[in-house]
Amino acid sequence: MSAAKIPDISKYLTRLPHIWCSGCGNGIVVGAMLRSLEKLNLEQSQVAVVSGIGCSGRAGTYLNLCGFQPTHGRALAFATGVKLGNPKLHVIVLAGDGDTLSIGGNHFIHACRRNIDVTLVLFNNSSYGMTGGQHAPTTPEGYKTTTTPYGNIDGNFDAVDLAKSSGATYIARSTIYHASQLSDLIAKGISHKGFSVIEAMTICPTQYGRMNKLGGAVEMMETLRKDAVSAKKAAGMDTDALKEKLLTGELYVKEGATEYTEAVQNVIAKAQKRRAQ
């Protein structure tokens, strides 16, 4: 993609500068999300962003879009109400891995199960950044955080696997190194009729990177580049070669499943028909 084609997203931004540390990947994810809106040419007032609590949750504060930042972990449950209240809105949730998979884990699996037409952009930095770098349900075993000074002993979730087994119908993953792909995947997720999860692998050089000696932002991005393998390419690779790799791209797409706001409308039609009899 040439520079000239990068969509202008300035109309979506407000209240900058942001509070994120230098080297933080959150801005890249937000940029990718905003470019997806521009690509889809969505009416600005018809987008609603519900954000989580934590570093990534702050994203909503910088957006010139309808949206709110409710309580920690509950963004998907709030977004479910927004979408049911006005199914015409494009509802996007911006939330972190701790927010979504730990305190909000229950809402995550149930949003997947309902297949409601909401797009979750899951910022995964493998830790809690805002509160000081504690371990999250995405922190790999053995890694150090401020609450795992001897190395993490908890198993970690794979958000993609969890989403798939819980019923999400569009699941993709990319990284902040692959910003253009990330933007395309978010656009596809928004266009998809049903619950979509786009896991955006990001970095926290300030806490997680420093504690695990992963280098600065540049080195951490380089690691993302090296670890990422597109799903297409992975199809031709053996299991051993895929160990420690990060599958990216569209990882699961199911078309034609009943979307939740439609299901609610079906119930209404059924009830009104029965009442008329």
Binding site: R74, A77, F78, T80, G81, V82, V267
Partner: peptide, 24 residues
Amino acid sequence: GRTFVQMEDEIASLSSVVGASFTG
């Protein structure tokens, strides 16, 4: 012609209630 949902818990119930109220 109105919407009823049973949510996964009480936290989600009030969450979606407040979310819906944002849309009027």
